[in-house]
């Protein structure tokens, strides 16, 4: 019977002698051993791997799981009757149809309590960009109507105090969100758009003169 794969030691030795003569004599050595009885036991070890891999789940595991759990519960109830749900009825009750109507009630409440959430997590460059755009609009507006409304202001000549006073007087005219975008405050303000008093206070307290100048 032919043993595969075929070998040809003489051809190998001749080739090796030409390539690396110093290695020829070591090629035929066999310094390895195996534990006694290893090969006799190997097939059984492989069968254990094939049949008994602990990470495998039996094919019908999930189908049988509910029955097995219930069997354990019944066994526990027999051993300790006080655990039985049947002998200790639930003492709390809910109105009829409570759970059937709950989603609708929640939806209705949510609809009546809608609030606007304004995020204030803006970076400084967002504030600068918004201020530049706003300033361009304001300046453009006044420059475009120089003859009909004599309201052109010499912005450069205004002092910080004058700017602050101007802002206090006109803050209602601005959208709250525009002002909020000029800040880098790391909070979220839940507010109604009509709360201009609070907004005015906040602007005067939180914004510095430079920001106001930028804004205008």
């Amino acid at each position: 019977m032919t043993r595969y794969p075929t070998s040809d030691p003489q051809e190998r030795q001749a080739e090796l002698a030409a390539l690396a003569p110093d290695l020829v004599r070591y090629a035929a050595r066999h310094p390895w051993h195996v534990p006694s009885g290893y090969f006799a036991a190997l097939p059984e070890a492989v069968w254990q791997q094939i049949n008994g891999n602990p990470t495998d789940i039996p094919a019908d595991y999930f189908a049988q799981l509910p029955d097995q759990v219930m069997a354990r519960i019944r066994a526990a109830e027999e051993a300790e009757p006080t655990l039985s749900f049947a002998t200790h009825p639930q003492p709390f009750q809910v109105p009829d149809n409570y759970f059937a109507t709950l989603p609708e009630q929640v939806t209705r409440q949510v609809a009546t309590q809608k609030s606007r959430v304004i995020k204030l997590q803006r970076r400084w460059y967002t504030a600068v960009t918004a201020a530049a755009v706003l300033a361009a609009i304001v300046i453009g507006y006044f420059s475009w109507q120089p003859d009909t409304q004599n309201t052109t202001l010499a912005w450069e000549s205004l002092s910080s105090t004058e700017l602050t006073a101007y802002l206090s007087d006109h803050v209602e005219e601005w959208e709250a969100e525009e002002l909020m975008e000029l800040t880098d405050q790391e909070t979220t303000l839940l507010m109604d758009s009509t709360q201009t008093d609070q907004l005015e206070d906040w602007v005067l307290e939180e914004m510095d003169v430079q920001e106001l100048e930028d804004l205008l």
Binding site: T6, S7, E11, R12
Partner: peptide, 15 residues
């Protein structure tokens, strides 16, 4: 395969 088992190149090529 070649040094210790002297396997033929044709067999090695198939494997």
């Amino acid at each position: 395969m070649r040094y210790y088992d002297a396997m033929k190149y044709e067999d090695m090529a198939a494997i």
